[in-house]
Design a protein around this nucleic acid. Sequence first.
RNA 1: GGAGAUGUCGCCUAGUCUGGUUUAUGGCGCCCGCCUGCUAAGCGGGUUGAGGUUUUAAGACCUCUCGAGGGUUCAAAUCCCUCCAUCUCCGCCA
Length: 436
Amino acid sequence: MIDPRLLRAEPHLFRDSQSRRGADDSIVDRFLELDASRRAAQQQFEELRAQQKKLGKQIGPARGAEKRGELTEDQQAELTQWLSEAEELSVRVKEAESKAVDLEPQVAAAANEIENLVDFEAPVGTEADFQTLFEVGTPRDFESEGFTPRDHLELGEILGAIDTDRAAKVSGSRFFYLTGDGALLELALLNLAMSFATSNGFTPVIPPALVRPPAMAGTGFLGQAEENVYRLEADDLYLVGTAEVPLAAYHSDEILDAADLPQRYVGFSPCFRREAGSHGRDTRGIIRVHQFDKVEMFSFCDPDQAVAEHQRLLSWEREFLDLLDVPYRVIDVATGDLGASAARKYDIEAWIPTQGRYREVTSTSNCTTFQSRRLNIRMRGDSGSTQPLATLNGTLIAMPRVIVALLENHQAADGSVAIPKALQPFLGGREHLVPT
RNA sequence: GGAGAUGUCGCCUAGUCUGGUUUAUGGCGCCCGCCUGCUAAGCGGGUUGAGGUUUUAAGACCUCUCGAGGGUUCAAAUCCCUCCAUCUCCGCCA
């Protein structure tokens, strides 16, 4: 949800933001019109309501006196007069109220369509217009090493670590089993990630993966992203696509003390994605799947600190990926490719040898006050007044894609895979995964 | 899943049966001030949140807010309905 006061004061900002996203900017003026008429109707209602309450305050004591038989004839007549006035007023109050109430959903719908104000520093354009910020590490030259690299699925099968055939039998396409060392590898990555995050001051959380509609709507996943969300019809619950959802909603309807900010959480959860609209893409292996596990960082902070906090999340992502010793690049995502909630987004893409290109493994977004307005999360500052705070999220590790990157980048000609040093303690000190 | 109870402005609490004279009572905590060698105690005041109107500003005023949403009524914390949550007991269950 955007800031309605800011929009009324400076609508040009929002028109500009919408067009940078390649989104409809006429919605801004539609909102302004609806908002103005709703406020006029609201005022009308409030005025009538004030009259009604005033009259009610006269009727109350008079009724009491009447019951005790203390009213003079004149007072009795006055009371009768008041009652008939009140009756008539009541009708007008109801009319005015329903007029105002009827406009509310329209105003809300218009407000909902306006996406978060983009960071005007973000590169403008569509998906391909990202800007590369860093490239770290050098892709291995397998040719000079004298062998052709196997892709992650082939390696996974040799190692007895990944089984997509049986997953297809049991659950359909885009599912997988992690077996043997594959299962142990995920657990090791999980433990490495959790110890990394907690040593950096994050509060570890294992959140629910099923949430009610307000949590989903509040985080901005029920707009154009809705088709990718699983919904459980019988219970009106959603399967989350990321721990961002239950972590953001954790403090909904709360007022946090500014002195306690930033509050940083790291959540581990399964993630469910319908992958509607991506038929035929990444059908092989475990790059694009319906269910996977992820460790997600989430921060509630002062809006003035949000840009700096975003940089911190990005550095933690990089630091963690450095531990895994995989070549990667960092990109500043273009405005047209931002989610509705995000003002700015950085993706980290790891090098995938058999594809000869970088693929997204983490993503961090600054949602400024967009989510906190929807979820009603506020902070109380020194002035004593409340204001919306900023929310930011960042992937620490998305299991399947990191497993893909590890297997492919660290493979040897014999099909074994070297385990990065930092991960070894979490795999019983082993240095390699070997074919079974 | 069955039966019962409960939900009041940070926490506790009065008010609900019997609708109006309630700007929702009181206590704790917190904030400001007074008093006092210091501290404690005492005294006075303030203390839910949201939206809006107005003002240079401080402020002033109005509406909404008693778990949520509907309804009845001239008038709802109070009466009725639906939903949500919590607690106790029973059943089932990892």
